[in-house]
Design a protein around this nucleic acid. Structure first.
Length: 310
DNA sequence: AAACAGGCCTAAA
DNA sequence: TTTAGGCCTGTT
């Protein structure tokens, strides 16, 4: 059974393009945008749908809404869906098959519980530079503040996104929800701001790291096409040559920005998970080509358990 | 008030 | 090769 085959149709409302996807399985918008992989989407609280998240990606403003197995993408054409949003949302992959693969490689009961509990998470395919830069910012930081900092550099250095194709009513609703309407900044625009300018936006000790990464991006010393072709282990080493990028940040960038689904970021939560549920000699590679997805399931699961305490 | 937040760098053994 | 401190800032 193939779960990628959603029925795609194009709707229109007051000139705004809307994609409607019927029969979508193993997809949960809230989990997708609330599991900490993406810092630019916020929930639209008075949505006409069960749940809706809106934000900017690839220089475009969209919102993604869901009622049961039906998913809507507002402000998107069929072409944009096929070329950008389908892969961005992980809708080009069969998560039924992925979950089976993960479960076939491990009999760990916490992992099988996690797969069930976290069902519906999809790994986003984000812009590579945005992922690299965002996860540099994420270090020694918490999610609300990461989101604030990413919003701040986008407001300062990004370009205003085009809202001309949007239904005015929808646009107004979204503007009321702290949505930020600027694209993620190019490396060049961040360089222009300088280390001092970046620090002035409260990025703290990360300012020089962002600057260094942006410089190496701009000079093509960091070659995204090269990373694309590398295996994950080599790509981690490669990215770690940038000041401010260590194994965890590199793994996150590869998982969320390059669709390297075997990248396995080890943060404080995952350390806890490994200590709690796995043997001391646990090797992430044992979870196979989708180890990074398993990591997200475990991450989500442990945070879920934590939230249930007290 | 002190510790911590989805780490990483540097120095020191 | 592994192990301590320190780090911007904000929140609890």
């Amino acid at each position: 059974m193939v779960n990628t085959a959603a029925a795609v149709s194009a709707l229109e409302s007051n000139g705004m393009n809307i994609i409607k996807l019927d029969g979508v399985e193993l997809f949960d918008v809230r989990k997708v945008f609330d599991c900490g992989q993406c810092f630019r989407f916020d929930e639209v609280s008075d949505s006409r749908h069960d749940v809706e998240f809106a934000g900017v990606a690839f220089g475009k403003y969209i919102s993604v809404a869901q009622d049961g197995n039906t998913v809507y993408i507002y402000n998107a054409t069929v072409e944009e869906y096929e070329t950008i949003w389908k892969s961005f949302l992980g809708l080009d992959r069969d998560y039924g098959e992925i979950n089976d693969n993960i479960l076939s490689l491990s009999s760990n009961s916490a992992l099988s519980d996690a797969v069930e509990r976290a069902s519906g998470i999809r790994i986003l395919r984000q812009d590579a530079w945005e992922a690299i830069c965002s996860f540099i910012i994420s270090q020694n930081n918490n999610i609300p503040r990461i989101k604030k900092l990413v919003a701040a550099i986008s407001l300062e250095c990004g370009e205003p996104v085009d809202l001309s194709g949007m239904d005015e009513h929808i646009a107004d609703v979204h503007k009321a929800h702290e949505g930020n309407f600027y694209s993620f900044p190019s490396p060049e625009s961040l360089i222009e701001l300088g280390v001092a300018g970046l620090a002035a936006l409260k990025t703290g000790f990360r300012a020089k790291y962002i600057y260094d990464a942006a410089s190496r991006m701009s000079s093509r010393e960091i070659d995204l096409d090269l990373i694309e072709k590398m295996n994950t282990a080599d790509a981690v080493k490669y990215l770690c040559s940038v000041k401010g990028i260590g194994p965890k940040v590199a793994s996150c960038a590869l998982l969320f920005g390059f669709a390297k689904l075997d990248a396995f970021p080890i943060d404080v939560w995952i350390k806890k998970v490994i200590a709690k549920y796995f043997d001391a000699d646990f090797d992430p590679d044992s979870l196979g080509q989708y180890a990074g997805i398993a990591q997200q399931y475990l991450f989500y699961y442990e945070r879920y358990l934590q939230s249930q305490e007290g």
